[in-house]
């Protein structure tokens, strides 16, 4: 079995199993924990409406505080959008999703995807450096932060290398580069449910909850 066969075969199947089972496990384990009842007279309006609203409003910092977090906020959006374009709108990637989901969508031209990937990589590197030097970030960061960075950035790097056939000078062949790229994505899948990368699943619920909790006291979250 070659590396590419391994990557496209058993590694892919198992990484997806771990991804799916891990996410569901963590979800069930969190949300089936106990809940404490609230007895005070609530003050605001509908907590449902407030919760749903907060899912949207937390997408941007509240205007009064925006100037304090401008850099994190905008760079965060920049690399997330770049990553989404790369992941979701590159033709070969769409085929992968289509094989699992059963439907596809139009791709963007390769040049656009390439530019997005390059920008994303640049921002991620800048953010890593920032994480290592910023007084807050370097204090609160641990293994998970760096591991998450690594498994997110690696597929981007291996993807760009495979795309550009870089590494041919070192005798690395395309199928090896492609295999490494696929394996790096599978590493991401496997790590996904276990660290902070889980946040795209939980964010909607936590935002919803803080919106409701604050609304009960008549405060806009």
């Amino acid at each position: 079995m070659t590396l590419l066969e391994f990557a496209r075969g058993p590694a892919m199947e198992w990484s997806l199993i771990i991804l799916v089972a891990g996410v569901v496990l963590r979800f069930a384990g969190i949300f089936l924990l106990t809940r404490h009842k609230t007895y005070f007279r609530t003050k605001g309006g509908s907590t449902l409406a407030a919760g749903l609203r907060t899912i949207g409003t937390r997408s941007a910092p509240t205007p009064d505080l925006e100037h304090r977090v401008r850099f994190s906020h905008y760079t965060g959006y920049l690399w997330h959008i770049g990553l989404f374009i790369t992941v979701l709108f590159y033709a070969p990637h769409i085929l992968f999703f289509e094989s699992i989901l059963g439907f596809g969508w139009p791709a963007l031209p390769t040049s656009v995807v390439l530019a997005a990937a390059a920008v994303t990589l640049a921002v991620l590197i800048a953010l890593l450096i920032r994480r290592m030097v910023h007084p807050v970030l370097k204090t609160i960061s641990g293994f998970d932060d760096y591991a998450s960075w690594f498994v997110t950035t690696l597929p981007l790097v291996t993807g760009l290398v495979a795309f550009g056939h870089l590494g041919a000078d070192f005798g690395w062949r395309y199928e090896t580069l492609l295999a490494v790229h696929i394996l790096s994505v599978e590493l991401l899948f496997v790590y996904f449910p276990f660290g902070k990368l889980f946040h795209p699943f939980s964010i909607w619920f936590t935002r919803y909850m803080i919106g409701g909790q604050m609304e009960q006291r008549g405060v806009r979250a």
Partner: peptide, 19 residues
């Protein structure tokens, strides 16, 4: 870019096991 990712049945099993 599409590999042998298994089947929906296997993934459904993963969901059940995880839950």
């Amino acid at each position: 870019s599409v590999g042998d990712w298994g089947s929906h049945e296997v993934l459904a099993g993963a969901v059940v096991a995880g839950a």
